[in-house]
Amino acid sequence: MSNAHPDLDLLTEYTAGSLPLTQSACISLHISQCTRCQRIAGQLADLGACLFEAQEPSTVGDAQLDAVLARLDEEPPLSYAKASKDIGNTPAVLQRLMRGDFSDLSWKNIGSALRISYLQTGDPQHELAIYHFKAGGRIPEHTHRGSEMTLILQGGFSDADGSYHKGDFLVRRQGDVHAPTALQSEDCICLVVLDAPLKFTDWKFRWMNPFLKLRTTA
């Protein structure tokens, strides 16, 4: 089980349904593999249901009921029969955003240790991307202009704060500087949500900053 989790504030907003789509997708992928967070999210959903039932009911007339009863024989939309199993390395949630496996994505190389593939989510304020670090590769030191959520899908990495593995969920806030290094044993694949572009602080890579615009479309 994972050691790095979304904090209680994020889990509350996640279960209340107020997080942006991309952040919500990232957290749901963590929860699907974390029994601790399943337990908390389950309790928070029950809390939502208790508040829901404690509301002052509005008036809904019989015409509404009749309209619904008349529509019960409609065929359910095809999307209800969604794929709910992970295929290969691709978690079920991501299957809706990409075709094939991670190896079939189109990648942009950022230096020799990192390549990035941007997923199209329709979220205008956030970028959802898959980062692929070569085993042992060091990412140039960078700082965050906004917040960054990371979920490790494969492998792991370490930075000054510790080391992280598959299923771990991390948030970096504005102004945090770090230089993660992928573990030596295998390549590391992460799902990353950004609300503002990264900024490289390592002088050798500063030339890349103007190119690191937020990509909300691929």
């Binding site: 349904g17 789509l21 997708a25 389950g42 959903a45 949630v93 199209q120 979220d123 205008p124």
Partner: peptide, 17 residues
């Protein structure tokens, strides 16, 4: 007019144990 292939049920369905 937020056009996305994901529905909220895809990403935040009921979490069952």
């Amino acid at each position: 007019k937020f056009d996305t292939p994901l529905s909220a049920d895809d990403i935040a369905g009921s979490q069952e144990s």
